[in-house]
Amino acid sequence: MKTLVKVTLVLVLIVMAFAAVTLSVSAQDDPRRPVSDDEVNAVSKKLYCPVCENITLDTCGTLACAQWRDEVRILLSEGNTPEQVIENFVVRFGDRVVGTPVDPLLRAIALITPWVFSAAVLVGVAVVFFRWRSEGTHTAPMAAKRSTEKTPNATHSLEDYRARLESDLAARR
C-alpha cells in the first residue's frame, strides 16, 4: 500500500515537473481547451482544502483555495477527467482533501464502522428481547392478557375509533 502511494507520488512528480517546464515555455500558444467555471466548481465541490476546515473548495474564499481552483482548472484543461483531477489531489495532498477517504483501508474504516456499531446495538436489543420473551412466558402473562382485552377487533367505524381513542386517553391518566 505504502509503496504504491510512493510510486504514484514519484510518477506524478515527474509528470508535474515536466509539465511545469513545458508550461512555462509554451504559455503563449495555448493548446488547452477552455474550461467553464461550472466544470471547475463541480470538481471543487468534492475537494476540501486544509486551509478551510470542513468547507469545500468551491466555497472557500482564501487565496490558497483560489489557487487550488486554478490548479483544478489547469488539470481539467489538460484533458484530465474530474476523477483523475481528484486522484491527483489525493496523491499530492493526502486523503484529507476528499469528503471520504480514497485509501481502501481508511475508506472501509470510515464507512463500515458505524454499521458495525449499529449491528452491535441491534444484536444487543435482540438478545434483550429474546431473554424477555423467554422470561415473559412464565412471569408476565397478566399484562399480556390485559392488553389483549383492551384491543378491540379490527373494525373501522367511527364509533369504534372513538372508543379506542377514549380508552387510549383514559389509560394515560
Binding site: 512528480l13 511545469a20 490548479e71
Partner: peptide
C-alpha cells in the same frame, strides 16, 4: 505547505 508545483515554481 498545501501548494502546487506550478505556483511554487
Amino acid at each position: 505547505y498545501t501548494d502546487t508545483e506550478r505556483n511554487a515554481q
